[in-house]
Design a protein around this nucleic acid. Sequence first.
RNA 1: GGGCGCGUAGCUCAGUGGGAGAGCACCCGCCUUACAAGCGGGGGGUCGAAGGUUCGAAACCUUCCGCGCCCACCA
Length: 832
Amino acid sequence: MSVPEKPSLDGIEDKHAARWESDGIYRFDRTRLRDDVYSIDTPPLTVSGSLHVGHAFSFTHTDIMARFHRMRGKTVFYPIGWDDNGLPTERRVQNYFHVRCDPRMPYDPDLPEPVPPHTAAERKRPPTRISRRNFVELCTRLTAIDEQAYESVWRRLGLSVDWSTMYTTIGSTAQRVAQRAFLRGLAAGDVYHALAPTAWDVDFQTAVAQAEQEDREVTAAYHRIAFGATIDGAQATVAVDTTRPELLPACVALVAHPNDERYRHLIGTTATSPLFDVPVPIHAHHLADPAKGTGIAMVCTFGDATDVQWQRELGLPIRPIIGRDGRLVEANLATWGASADGAAYYQSLVGKTAVQARRDVVALLAETGLLIGEPKPLTHAVKFYEKGERPLEIITSRQWFVRTLAHRDALLEAGRQLRWQPAFMRQRYDDWVRGLTSDWLISRQRFFGVPFPIWYPLDETGEPRYDEPIVPAEDVLPIDPMTQPPPGFTEADRGRPGGFAGDTDVMDTWATSSLTPQIAGGWCDDEDLFRRVYPMDLRPQAHEIIRTWLFTTTVRGLAMTGRLPWRTAAISGWIIDPDRKKMSKSVGNVVTPMELLDEYGSDAVRYWAASGRPGADTAFDTNQMRVGRRLAMKLLNASRFVLGFPAPSPSANVTVALDLAMLASLDVVIDDATAALESYDYTRALERTNAFFWTFCDDYVELVKQRAYGSGRGAESARLALRQALDALLRLFAPVLPFVTEEVWSWWRTGSIHRAEWPTRLGGAGDPAVLDAASDLIGAVRRAKAAENLSMRTEVPKVTVSADTAALEHWDAVSDDLRAAANAETVDVAAP
RNA sequence: GGGCGCGUAGCUCAGUGGGAGAGCACCCGCCUUACAAGCGGGGGGUCGAAGGUUCGAAACCUUCCGCGCCCACCA
């Protein structure tokens, strides 16, 4: 045993982290069966440059639970993953290297790594265009660098993950799992592809799932335009309000509510669109809102989701004019019934963006008197891709979907079976499942992702036969259909009539990360492991991704195994800055975790994190970190002091009432902390332990140290009680403060504290009330001495205190120690 | 528009039917042989507002105000 003369926190993180790794302290023991396992479905963080304090915050909560269950005797399956595929990585690579992917370019095996631009002028140059494979290589290279930086932060923070389990969502295991799940879904009919109108981002040029859309308030204007109509055989006009006059050429109908008296006589007649003179039917439909605009709406291909519904339910034609890049496409309006002038005018709009075309159309409407009055400005909510900058368009394209609507009831039931922490978060899940409007869209027209393991035969004209896809065998996964031929073909058959074509899309990130339990748990490669860890015990995650990560993992779990993928979902809160705003990069108020770990120490940062209650948004508070550091220092000093007394003899017993009382109080703390951690309330566990520890230091140790310096039964009782308490306290603190507790443990114990048993009741026969009385009485002595401006050390003949009757009941049990601590010959009680 | 959460000392937060609390900050004191990056003591709140239930409300109910978040069919 060696207790340092001058204990210090300096360097303890690196010292112990290195030992934990070399000794395999956190290695998963795969010989244990499911009941002995505590498994965690760790969030694979998006690797996009830098970690955020919020990550350190929520990951600490999970780590506390992992450490608690490990000390309780479970073997903890605590994998770690990085989410490195998908659009965030593409964007980062584009910006960092100033490149763009151009799938038409050939692969260049000797492409030198692009030099990131340094000056504004370099940034203004057009980006370098590189092939898809070169682009993917750059993505892989950059994420590998980022992942190392992340790992070093997590090691410093002391996360007890098993680093041998590390996976990435673009890695081959993840690709194999994602492709196998896709093929099984396809075989089961849960995955399908369809040519369907879907939300489309014209800048990223990809379809976007419902979960990635958000509403934004934008300013727009009602344009009241005059359609031609026939009323009682006479020519008339119908005024229609629209915020998107540029979609006029795509107009397929007008719609009014069936009960709307103003338009009842027009239902079933035909109107004529202004400028283009296309005849369009006038229909009745209950979704037409008499209160909006003039009460009669223009149906286009496609202005909004209602247009899609009207098209389907009213059997309307489809007249697409917006292209994948957001510009108006070639269309022969004559075939839709347009006048020659109208068709010719449309030609002048081809190639313009929606905004440009709108300006043009409105100007011509005004010029020809077909615009009624001035445009009326309004603000309304418009759907955007959450990462996008222009409103989403609705574009018809071929996409892959996973069925969710058909399973709505089962998904709601799953939400009820899941244990939510905090419970009210289930509401968000329910709201989302109830509000689903389409199946889950998983295909993206992007580059850096898991490919769809599908080929299509080409007919004699070279057209893909989408209804007869060619699938690979499961044991050859993962495959890339863009570089590998399907069975029975060679690369020479690619693109040739009678040959094949690979599916060009990649899966959205959520299609992979919805499978994290399967990826980490060995679903493809290690059925034995999978049985030992699945379903997992804990899914920790943030609340804003309930509708994405939590929802999609549930969908996959139900589809693949028929049950929930985990027992408990622990939803973490956000870190907010002092102005009550969520801390985020865009606000520019971010401090990096490594800076904090350097300045305050890892245990201190973890202490702050543990002070944020489960699910609660928590203030970023460096003051709490200072307090945490002070606690860590106090643990060092108090431990040094306790261990500085001679070790009690093996035959020693705790016999003194005050010592028994302290241990009895500690028993209550152990019970409380254990119960709190069992219900995921790490904050309460820490609070109880912390409060007891300070009482232990300030009152109990102060009272008994004179006795402990002496000899005899009383001294032995104190020394033994001090050590027993220290031993239990270190273990109670270990999940929150892994470094300082390990440091102290190393002074006098063998092995790692993190493999030690979680403390249980010491079972003494003490009365906790005696410790309370002792605290009250030593407090009374301090007040008496402070009133005279005396130090506790100052020797006095007599101290007179006032105390309440509850404390005085235990006077005899405390009086000897109290006299010693007071440095007084006598301590008297003042008359009440 | 619908839903969820929050509002307690200057700050960060516990407390959910019977004494209004903790830490930090502030003020005063103490070189006390574990710790002066320490220790001790003290002041400080009409518990967001109003109404109701109750012998009794910070807590339960209703309404309102404020803050945050989630969701919602864009004419």
